[in-house]
Nucleic acid binder design. Structure first.
Lengths: 117, 117
DNA sequence: ACTCCAGATCGACCGCCATCTATATCCGAG
DNA sequence: CTCGGATATAGATGGCGGTCGATCTGGAGT
């Protein structure tokens, strides 16, 4: 990304004749944008937003068997959404006996939250 | 969503023998989750994150001809990303003569930002 | 050891998304 | 009114994502 650029190639406009202000650049760099986009993608589904919401309210105390009936979805689908959140680093899981408990990992959402402000 | 549920059907566990705390519910309702997920989906691409970032830094002063060379993408692709952001309500556009200027609509990101906190 | 159950994984299906090239639209200049 | 340049749209294509049913895994209780 972030190419050479002078101004639009094939343009006969001379320097100073730009359509707008001097050249602009993003403040966030490519890598940071990639990280934040990954977190945003993980939250790009209403089910996952609600999952994160539930887990934030009951951190470490919710097992999957209680999450599944909250949605009109099959158990494998809910499990899939939890996996997406886990792979994005947003939640973690712990197995206690038969059951699996999920919790929000604090701080992973922070970068995106800070940038959005 | 938010089904009846007693506890897991087919389970012989009696009341009180739940695997965890009493039934939990998300705090954000379905509609709110859908809205926030839509915003998140619009931000689920590094290019769009950087576009929003540039526009926030130079609100109303950036024309498309200046955005395109920031990325290794064709002009139609950048135009497509801007359209996605526009349809999500995150940015607006104004045509001045030959050029189109984009700007961030303040407040649309606010709901998501507030929830993330 | 056998069985049952919670949860994860697999494979398939289908729709959506990012990207490109080609083309259309729109506007200002001459 | 025609020409050229700046954006937008259209159409095609390849890949990713959400969902399901079926199956695998592993811990508990008998």
């Amino acid at each position: 990304m972030a190419v050479d650029l002078e101004f639009s190639p094939k343009t006969k406009r001379a320097a100073g004749e730009r359509c707008c202000e001097p050249v602009v650049y993003p403040d966030v760099q490519r890598e940071q944008a990639v990280r934040m986009a990954a977190v945003a993608r993980a939250l790009a589904d209403p089910v996952r937003v609600q999952l994160v919401d539930v887990l934030r309210l009951h951190a470490g105390k919710v097992c999957v068997c209680e999450l599944v009936p909250l949605f009109d979805l099959s158990q494998p689908t809910v499990s899939h959404h939890l996996k997406v959140l886990r792979e994005a680093g947003i939640v973690g899981s712990e197995r206690r006996g038969l059951w699996a408990y999920y919790f929000v990992i604090p701080g992973v959402l922070a970068e995106l939250a800070a940038w959005l402000q």
